[in-house]
Structures are given as structure tokens and as C-alpha cells.
């Protein structure tokens, strides 16, 4: 940008900007504090013993994290370790299937010229907005009829059809996948499926990474459908365990352990987010422009 053009006078304008910057930074910092405060309290409470927590809040970490952690792991009602493992399996597979097949579908619509192409593209856009809860009744009944209660198949396979991921991939291809590459691969004698796997996928890597993270997170946090399908204590995912903890009387629980259990559900995703945050933020903006 060019230097600011001043109609009035450079001096009054620059103090004006300084004041505005101070106000902006102050308000922004208050909100950053507000957004982080619950997690700050969580981390403090995770380290304090239940007896200590009941005494009232002190903003000083205690030394009971190890003990609280052990209590959580030994709690046979919660089975946190299993839930953690289950959530990893379900979310990991969901992220993989969702991104791969959505990319494949977007590629088909982007590259090939077939009769239904336009119609199918519009169709996918339309179904993007249908809330998952609307078909939950039919879905749960169908899965029960197929004997898939307490199976992970209903939690993983539906993600193959992910309209939002498809849409993102399609947008990305429009901006960074020249069709000449496909032509060139054909001249070199590469089969269509091989072209996609060994040539196109690497080009799509940035988009796939962003979508894999988003899909992983949303599957990790998914509560409504899993809670309707999973009742085997060994098969529960993390949000279901949170519900189990909530339905007990808080006063009867070891509070230090409750905080650690919440922490276990939050921390893995928070760490992944903080490590990849720059990348993720860029991804959201990328999707937003097209909105």
C-alpha cells in the first residue's frame, strides 16, 4: 500500500491512529483473555486434588495431576483410555476416507465431461445444507436392522460422501489443477485411476491436509449420532463418556478427575490445532472467500 494520504495534517492523524491502535489492542487482548480463560482454569484445576478444589479456587497449580490422571484411568465407568483409542481410530479413518473419496469425486466432476456432471454438482451443493439430525431416525434404525449397533462402520463409512469436503476440493482444483497435466499423463500412457493417485493427489496435498484436519476434528467432536448407536462401554467415543460423566451427580465425583477427563478430550485436538494453526487459519479463509 502507498503511504497514507493526509488531507488535514500528518500530525493529528498519526496521534489519532495511535489512539485507535491502543484501543484496538486493548479490546482484542481482553477477548483473547476471555477465549483462553476457561482453558486456563481447566489446566489449573487438573493439577489440584478433589479436596483442594472443594476448598475454593486458587490460581496456583497443585501437585495432584498424576494422581488425578491415575484416578481417571482406573475409573471403570468411564474407560477413558479405551474411549481415547476409539476416538482416534474412528476420527483417523473418517479423515482418510472422507478426504480421499471427496477428492476423487471432485476430480471426476472437475476433469471429465459427462452428461450428469452439472446436475450432480448442483445436487451435491443442495444436500450440503441438510442437517445430519434430520435423517438420524432412519439412519439409526437402518444400522440397527443391519446389525451394526456398536459397530464403527456407521460412524466411518458415511463420511465417504462429504459434500463440504467435496466442495472445498472442487474449489481448490479450479484454482490450482490445470487440465493440461491430465492430458500430458494420458499421452504418457498413464491410466486414469493411476493418474489420480500418483499425479493428482500430490498436487492436492495442501487442500487434503486442511480438510483431513477439519474432518478429523469434527469426527472427534461428533456426539449426536455416536450416542444413539454406541452403548457398549468398551466401544464408546469421548463425547459419550463426557455425557456419562455429566449424568452423574457432580458432588459425588472426584472433581480433579473430572477436570482431567475433560482435559483428555480437549488437549489432543488443541495441540494439533496450535501446531498447525497458521495452516488451518489460511484454510478457513480459503473456504470463506468462496462462501
Amino acid at each position: 500500500m502507498a503511504a497514507p494520504v493526509d488531507a488535514v495534517g500528518a500530525k493529528s492523524n498519526s496521534t489519532n491512529i495511535l489512539v485507535r491502535r491502543i484501543i484496538s489492542y486493548t479490546v482484542l487482548t481482553i477477548f483473547a483473555f476471555l477465549a483462553l480463560f476457561p482453558f486456563f482454569l481447566l489446566i489449573i484445576q487438573m493439577t489440584r486434588s478433589s479436596a483442594d478444589i472443594n476448598q475454593g479456587f486458587k490460581p496456583i497449580p497443585g501437585g495432584s495431576f498424576g494422581e488425578n490422571f491415575k484416578t481417571v484411568m482406573n475409573n471403570n465407568n468411564w474407560r477413558m483410555l479405551k474411549a481415547l483409542r476409539n476416538s482416534f481410530i474412528v476420527s483417523g479413518l473418517t479423515a482418510f476416507l472422507s478426504t480421499y473419496f471427496s477428492a476423487l469425486t471432485a476430480y471426476a466432476i472437475h476433469v471429465y465431461d459427462f452428461k450428469l456432471r452439472k446436475f450432480l454438482f448442483t445436487f451435491i451443493l443442495m444436500i450440503m445444507m441438510v442437517p445430519a439430525q434430520v435423517s438420524a431416525l432412519g439412519f439409526v434404525n437402518l444400522m440397527n436392522d443391519m446389525g451394526l449397533k456398536n459397530s464403527y462402520i456407521p460412524l466411518i463409512l458415511p463420511s465417504i460422501a462429504a459434500p463440504a469436503t467435496f466442495f472445498f476440493m472442487k474449489q481448490y482444483m479450479e484454482s490450482s489443477l490445470p487440465l493440461d497435466i491430465v492430458e500430458a499423463a494420458r499421452i504418457d500412457g498413464s491410466g486414469e485411476f493411476r493418474t489420480f493417485n500418483s499425479l493428482i493427489l500430490p498436487i492436492l496435498k495442501p487442500a487434503i491436509a486442511v480438510q483431513a484436519i477439519f474432518t478429523f476434528v469434527s469426527s472427534w467432536n461428533n456426539f449426536f449420532i455416536p450416542a444413539l448407536l454406541i452403548d457398549d462401554p468398551d466401544k464408546r467415543t469421548l463425547p459419550i463418556v463426557i455425557q456419562i460423566i455429566r449424568s452423574a451427580d457432580l458432588a459425588s465425583l472426584d472433581l480433579g478427575a473430572v477436570y482431567v477427563a475433560i482435559g483428555i478430550s480437549i488437549v489432543p485436538v488443541a495441540i494439533v490445532y496450535l501446531v498447525l494453526s497458521k495452516f488451518i487459519i489460511r484454510g478457513i479463509a480459503l473456504g470463506a472467500v468462496k462462501g
Binding site: 477465549a35 476457561p38 472427534w220 456426539f223 473430572v258 475433560i262 480437549i266 488443541a270 487459519i281
Partner: peptide, 17 residues
């Protein structure tokens, strides 16, 4: 980065917290 953080946190865990 900070403002977006709560969005990736499990809503059920946020509720419980």
C-alpha cells in the same frame, strides 16, 4: 489463532467444562 481455538474444541467437553 486464539480466537479460533474454541471452535476446534469438542462442544460436549466445552459444555461439561
Amino acid at each position: 489463532i486464539i480466537f479460533y481455538l474454541p471452535n476446534v474444541i469438542m462442544a460436549a467437553a466445552m459444555g461439561m467444562l
